[in-house]
Design a protein around this nucleic acid. Structure first.
Lengths: 149, 149
DNA sequence: TATTGTTATACTCTATAACTATA
DNA sequence: TATAGTTATAGAGTATAACAATA
């Protein structure tokens, strides 16, 4: 197995290296795809979680997405400033802030999702449906090894 | 196909989302694995490229790794300060800085690689050799879509 | 003109520590 | 005590613009 075939040497056989590069490629194209919407990867993810579980609080969103409580604050503030979600005190537990997506938020999710699906098709052009599912499966199994947030 | 099975909703079917999470999981474990060596993912990658192509200049390393010229400067300075590489003017093109790994750098690559291999085995525990190769193959095909640096 | 290295700068992501208010 | 939200802060990754020296 000629590793000198690649100018990358040992790197070429490291999953972590290729994960980093593939993530970078996806991120760059995502950024271009979402231009004009004001959404970044994290913001869309949060918006989508809140939309899926109306009334959820910040900490739970953070746990689902692997984002620390402290870092959630400014992200939620951004989404509120953009008029995409609103936040109110949970009457049953006044420590919690209950989050809900606004109508504008719902509309932006729909629009964003369209752009994201096009972006994913672009990045996965040439992949069969089988390969796409296998990739998702393998990535999910790696995620399962992540430390709790 | 019940997407409501997952609290992640649409996210769960997005490759970009899982790529982000899997990358995060790998990165966190890499960080722990390399504690004490002073190496981060990028530093090891640069070191490894320079070791594989002695005399290479900063721009070429950056192009191989997808790192911008401007951001290479401080990274190379770090490696020099750590005594892992040295830099000298290329006599044939005095704009270029020729990079070479020191003996200490070579030793640290060897030590780091051992730790990285253990880290990868940990993250890919339960993966067959076939699955590991398939994952590498799929990731490489995604990388190929990255914009030039 | 184009390229290499460089400086300066800004934005984002991630992490930790410490505080408050509630439970 | 434990948890939710918050503030402050620091380190790291990534991006652009502009400049000097060299090709």
């Amino acid at each position: 197995m000629p590793q000198s075939t690649s100018r990358l040497g040992v790197l070429d056989q490291l999953t972590g290296y290729h994960l980093r590069r593939a993530f970078g490629a996806f991120g760059a194209d995502f950024h271009i795809a979402m231009e004009g919407t004001g959404l970044r990867q994290v913001l869309f993810a949060i918006l989508s979680i809140v939309s899926n579980s109306p009334g959820i609080n910040q900490s739970r969103v953070g746990k689902l997405l692997g984002i620390k409580r402290a870092n959630m604050v400014s992200l939620i503030n951004e989404l509120i400033d953009l008029g995409l979600i609103f936040r109110m005190e949970d009457p049953r537990d006044r420590r919690s802030m209950s989050l809900t997506v606004t109508a504008a938020g719902t509309a932006l999710i729909r629009e964003g999702l369209k752009k994201i699906r096009a972006h994913e098709e672009r990045m996965l052009a040439g992949f069969t449906d089988d390969e796409k599912q296998i990739l998702l499966d393998l990535l999910r199994r790696i995620e399962a090894r992540a430390p709790a947030t």
